[in-house]
Design a protein around this nucleic acid. Structure first.
Lengths: 132, 132
DNA sequence: TATTGTTATACTCTATAACTATA
DNA sequence: TATAGTTATAGAGTATAACAATA
């Protein structure tokens, strides 16, 4: 979707947009599980398993037990460095996407997209990764 | 994407969004090939083959030879009826999507989306089905 | 040489069902 | 009973490569 260009921008970091977003979520929350991330991003639990395993395998995150069945995902130092780079790339991508709009027009549009998002999150969860 | 709700709305007609859009393109152009449609919608030639075959199989379109290697796709009468219904559903969907915006806000937003689209069509062709 | 349409194939994303272990 | 995490599997959608026929 609006992602294919972002996908290319993230290739040098070796992560996909969904993975980058997951890393930002982990960075923003001291305690967050992979099920939490799945719910936030509209990714099924079953599909979070290989994603989280891949991030662990690449040394970007580690697991910390919360209770017997839940594990918090935490950034490693490598993951933290990468998350910062990813955030910059994502912000640049958004700037490029809205670059031709005047600042006030961009703010109006973002406000309208936010309204759209309010409906989308209930009516069409798949829209969320597009806007959030 | 913004499509999953539209997908559901089109179920009664037995077509998917990409198929409905293809039917509208065929309706709008007296002579159009499946490669043309693929280029317009960002669908590869190789993937247009089964789509066109499915529309033929369901009696919605027919092929007319243009030259030795090209065939124009034309709506059958059934296809024409269905295309009209699909267009209404798509317009309703857009109206619902932008329903909470004032008419002037909606016009501004559509204008801005159009700008976005100008960049998207070259930078990110996958955006086109979202906007067009 | 370039293009149309086709086949075969593969990869990614998404989806469902079923299982365990824990709460 | 409900939830976390897992596995296996299936279905779209999308992608590449290769081919024959035609321009």
């Amino acid at each position: 979707m609006v992602m294919s260009d972002l996908t290319a921008s993230l290739v040098p970091l070796g992560v996909k947009p969904a993975e980058a977003t997951a890393l930002l979520l982990i960075a923003a929350h001291p305690v967050i599980t992979q099920s939490d991330i799945g719910r936030t991003l509209g990714i099924l639990r079953a599909n979070m398993t290989p994603m989280a395993a891949g991030l662990v395998r690449r040394g970007l995150i580690a697991r910390e037990p919360v209770d017997g069945r839940s594990q918090a995902l935490r950034l490693t130092s490598r993951g933290e460095v990468l998350a910062r780079k990813a955030q910059k790339i994502i912000l640049d991508h958004e700037a490029r996407l809205f670059g031709t709009l005047s600042p006030s027009a961009r703010d109006r549009m973002l406000g309208q997209l936010r309204e759209l998002w309010q409906r989308a999150r209930t009516e069409d969860p798949a829209l969320r990764p597009l806007i959030e």
